[in-house]
Nucleic acid binder design. Structure first.
Lengths: 219, 219
DNA sequence: TAGATTGTTAATCGATTAACAATC
DNA sequence: TAGATTGTTAATCGATTAACAATC
């Protein structure tokens, strides 16, 4: 039903997937501010997209607006939540309890939205046993057994790059079907497994490139 | 010179900017492994791109390969470094010394590549004065004065979302021309300022969407 | 009703790919 | 030389936008 207006089997364009979370984020903010209605033009203005693009993106999943009125914020937010698959909970494990792992583990927003870190693993014996974000840190040697007993939706990899492929393989072997990868390397997985990369280093280099490009143009 | 083969004024396609850091990362790895040469087909195989795309991306900036041979890893890595603007140093300030800020501040790779965090700011008096990553944490009230005295290339925002626009404005006012944004909100900046977003929440929602999409198709 | 704004179509724009001549 | 692989072109594919009939 969230697929109204969409031919079955068709894949959602990359750009749409990219923008949906941005809509979700802004609609959440509007709702908390008590805003009742919004037009595609206003949404576009606030988020630096064209109004046509926003209407086109949304109409991919159905007709959520009303001519002459725009969109009801609460209704649209609910629809976007559904489309994004946020109407259920997700069980996650976090691998790597270093600085980045700790930062991810203490992000309260995830839990509030139904993304729950059920267990944390680290290879460092000094960290194992420590308590963090409601979990005792376990040794990575226990990851395989843990996954056998606890079905897990998402594996978060926040290890140094030398360990990440090995951890990834353990996750895949343990039946985890999606990986959120913070380690600065490309992971090899079977086609059935989804990888979402969060490469800090790549992002900073993109920034450097654009900065450098501008300074070239100025001359 | 890094613009050979490119019409002046033409902007680099978004996809190329996205992939250049990935090439850089993999070429660095190859070089550290002592690999001397690589073909576009091998690069594509390792990184899940087509060979044609890699050749097309690179030829955008010049001719770095040789027919019948491929690319020399060291030479190509040097060229990509230049293209990305990594042949100079960048002065950065970090705003927000919470979990995420600490993780960013302790990432040694940045400094090794010439991206140096020169100062860290936080609004919390309990954190001010603490030592982290070679810097004493300063109160955000001193940010304006600091920027006047210390030209800064990149401002890193790792504050909660309620503070980020205000911090962004201070950075822009202080002459900072690019912002690396970790706070989960859209920043409004003049067209002359570059924003590179690192939205953890958006990334996780994209992953959830793809996972949800697959489970729909299975039925 | 008059004004506003949607959802959709067709036109445009941009990015990817397949193919191959050039050449190391 | 024979084999391999580049850089580039033309063809294809996909995404964005402008325009507008439909309608609240």
């Amino acid at each position: 039903m969230t697929l109204r207006g969409r031919k079955k089997g068709e894949t959602v364009p990359k750009g749409v997937v990219f923008r949906l979370p941005i809509y979700f984020r802004y609609l959440t903010e509007l709702q908390s501010q008590g805003v009742e209605r919004i037009s595609s033009a206003q949404l576009g203005e606030a988020l630096d997209f064209t109004a046509a693009q926003i209407r086109s993106d949304l109409s991919y999943f159905g007709s959520f607006g009303q001519q002459g009125y725009g969109y009801n914020v609460t209704t649209l937010l609910g629809q976007v939540r559904n489309i994004l698959g946020m109407s259920r909970d997700y069980a996650m494990v976090l691998i790597g309890a270093g600085n980045l792992g700790k930062a991810i583990g203490s992000y309260d927003w995830f839990r509030a939205q139904g993304f729950e870190i059920k267990a944390i693993f680290d290879i460092d014996p000094h960290l194992v046993g420590n308590f963090h974000g409601g979990c005792t840190i376990r040794p990575t040697s226990e990851l395989g057994t843990y996954l056998e007993e606890n079905p897990t939706d998402i594996g978060i990899i926040a290890t140094p790059k030398d360990a990440s492929q090995e951890m990834c393989d353990l996750l895949v072997q343990g039946g985890v079907r999606s990986i959120w990868n913070f380690s600065p390397t490309h992971l090899n997985v079977p086609a059935s497994v989804i990888v979402e990369d969060m490469h800090l280093t790549d992002s900073l280099l993109r920034l450097a490139f654009r900065l450098h490009e501008r300074s070239l143009k100025k001359q």
